[in-house]
């Protein structure tokens, strides 16, 4: 974990990014344009490994007690929002308290979209898979519901659907007997919206604690943030190279 003094001052950061964006926008306009085209790929074009979707969560901006990201995820993906031991949760608010200092932090925990996902390694049928653009998904057509991936995930990011479902979101098929988890709102990403429901909700609430983007695009806000501020991976000791990173812890 990083020390507290590594926390960036948010106003500085935004000012810097704005300046950076203007500078790159003028100096590298053709490059930016090119990349813009590549990102909004055509429906017939497969996801590219030139892109790696990721997320940075600034825990200093994440409000304790706010769960707008969770509600937005539930609405977007058709989850009931119930929180019993058998209910699915794709994203959850985690409250952590440092045992020595007593400092409390609130943060959203979701599938970390690892570069080397243990869930994909252990899946016997290959249903757990990582798309070329780094999004980790469950192919429900070949998931047999053995739950080995849930045993293997270090982040407790996966849920098993325990009962029959009806009236699913046509864009988010889900059903009994399969394992599921956060998809980085792949339906939105593939439409070219390049954002997720949780990030939109966090921005709408004015917290702006979550940032989604292409880690491989040096011009993207997320890549700039990665370059400028110290971010940490959860369970970095496992060397999974997660796509979701945290600031301020």
């Amino acid at each position: 974990m990083n020390e507290q003094n590594l926390k960036p001052d948010s106003s500085d950061r935004r000012a810097f990014l704005k300046a950076g964006a203007v500078a790159t926008g003028t100096a590298l306009a053709p490059g930016v344009l090119l990349f813009g085209v590549a990102q909004a790929r055509a429906p017939g074009e497969p996801a590219s490994d030139k892109v790696r979707w990721g997320m940075i969560i600034d825990t200093t901006k994440c409000a304790s007690g706010c769960s707008d990201c969770v509600t937005a995820c539930n609405t977007e993906n058709g989850l009931s929002g119930a929180t019993g031991p058998q209910d699915s949760q794709w994203i959850r608010k985690l409250n952590i308290r440092h045992l020595k200092s007593g400092v409390e932090t609130s943060l959203p925990m979701l599938c970390q979209h690892c570069e080397h996902p243990p869930c994909v390694d252990v899946c016997p049928t290959g249903a757990s898979m990582k798309r070329a653009d780094g999004i980790v998904l469950v192919d429900r057509h070949t998931c047999i519901g053995c739950r080995y991936c849930m045993m293997a995930c270090p982040y407790k990011a996966r849920s098993f659907v325990h009962e029959p479902l009806t009236d699913q979101n046509p864009e988010v098929p889900r059903g009994k007997g399969c394992v599921e988890s956060c998809t980085f709102c792949v339906q939105k990403v593939d439409r070219g919206e390049n954002t997720t429901a949780c990030v939109e909700a966090c921005n709408a609430a004015g917290h702006k604690a979550m940032l989604f983007g292409d880690l491989n695009d040096p011009q993207s806000e997320i890549a700039q943030t990665m370059k400028t501020y110290a971010t940490t991976e959860v369970r970095a000791d496992l060397r999974l190279n997660t796509g979701v990173r945290y600031q301020g812890i």
């Binding site: 994909v120 390694d121 252990v122 899946c123 016997p124 049928t125 290959g126 249903a127 070949t142 998931c143 047999i144 519901g145 053995c146 739950r147 080995y148 098993f160 659907v161 009994k176 007997g177 399969c178 394992v179």
Partner: peptide, 21 residues
């Protein structure tokens, strides 16, 4: 299994990195 009806999938799709497979 969550989907015991897909036993045939388990017999035809192998991820050789998986100790289960």
């Amino acid at each position: 299994l969550g989907r015991p009806d897909r036993l045939i999938v388990a017999m035809t799709h192998y991820n050789f990195k998986s100790i289960f497979a």
